[in-house]
């Protein structure tokens, strides 16, 4: 509690005691990040506005999920800062970080439900861990969250009994169990049928408005994200290639963004992965050819 008090104090100093928090809830400043020899981000800068649904888009392998991991300090940048409500999260101790993470809700790509617990227990898990609420109250909270995602009737099922879309919705109920300030979605639409996808799209917008939270949606599903996002970033080549409202991005002059938004098979992002000359490789004239 002492650590949390210190964190709140630091937060208080940022609001000048007025109680009003800055509009920029998350700032990524001059971030460099590499994995081995591969540079993922080079001098990346972006901000997430409070209360909005912000989409992080980009071709596969550009580091969208890595960016989420940097924002939640699952990874640390090689250089630069990630600020949450003006606080550099790299300076937080483990206890302070865990206090901060209680303000986050994260929907993982595959749901990441705890497989040895029922749907009910999965949603109750963070509440049991962080509060001393009586079981009767926990039951009310869990059923409310499950009702919000339309799965109150599935409370007694085990994760193995759920379809992909249902598992994603249960994970969403768990993500909002602690009433977070910031909800992060990592590829929430991947592998879903059109009906499940529609349900998730609807939930993203509804939850953001109903709970008055900030949402960050990482996706490469341009059309579905555009339906709910207030603002979007397109990431490519380690930096922000374009940003704006979905409408602005659709009308962009950037060839790369055009290719991405319209799903063109070839363009600045080539169809082929870097490879030696095709003819030379087939004829075996290169010493390193397979």
């Amino acid at each position: 509690m002492l650590c949390y008090a210190r964190f709140r104090d630091r937060l208080g100093s940022l609001t000048n005691g007025s109680g009003k928090l800055p509009d920029k809830i998350i700032e990524v400043r001059d971030v460099d990040f590499s994995r081995g020899n591969r540079t993922i981000f080079r001098n990346l800068n972006l901000t997430i506005e409070r209360g909005q649904v912000t989409a992080i888009m980009g071709p596969s392998g550009t580091g969208k999920t890595t960016l989420l991991q940097l924002i939640t300090r699952q990874l640390r940048p090689d250089r630069g800062q990630v600020l949450v409500d003006g606080v550099d999260i790299a300076t937080l101790s483990q206890a302070q970080l865990y206090q901060l993470r209680q303000r986050f809700g994260v929907l993982f790509q595959n749901g990441a439900l705890l497989t040895d617990m029922s749907v009910f227990e999965n949603v109750a898990f963070p509440i049991r861990e962080h509060t001393r609420l009586p079981d009767s109250l926990i039951r009310h909270v869990v059923l409310t969250k499950l009702h919000a995602v339309g799965l109150r009737g599935a409370a007694d099922l085990m994760p193995s009994q759920l379809s992909g879309g249902m598992a994603r919705r249960v994970a969403l109920a768990r993500a909002i169990a602690m009433d977070p300030d910031i909800l992060l979605y990592d590829e929430p639409f991947v592998g879903l049928d059109p009906i499940s996808m529609g349900v998730i799209v609807k939930l993203v917008g509804q939850l953001n408005d109903a709970l008055d939270i900030t949402s960050i949606v990482v996706s490469h599903d341009v059309h579905d994200v555009a339906a709910v996002a207030d603002f979007s970033y397109v990431i490519a080549d380690g930096d922000v290639a374009a940003s704006g409202t979905p409408e602005e991005l659709r009308n962009t002059s950037s060839e790369l963004v055009k290719q991405f938004m319209h799903g063109l098979p070839d363009g600045p992002v080539g169809f082929h992965y870097d490879a030696p000359d095709y003819a030379e490789q087939l004829l075996g004239t290169r010493s390193d050819s397979r």
Binding site: T72, Q74, R101, F108, N110, A112, T115, F125, P126, E129
Partner: peptide, 17 residues
């Protein structure tokens, strides 16, 4: 398997060590 299916990461993100 818990690690491979992000269950450990999910716990960390729920502030559970």
């Amino acid at each position: 398997l818990m690690k491979a299916t992000d269950q450990l990461s999910a716990m960390e993100m729920m502030a559970v060590d």
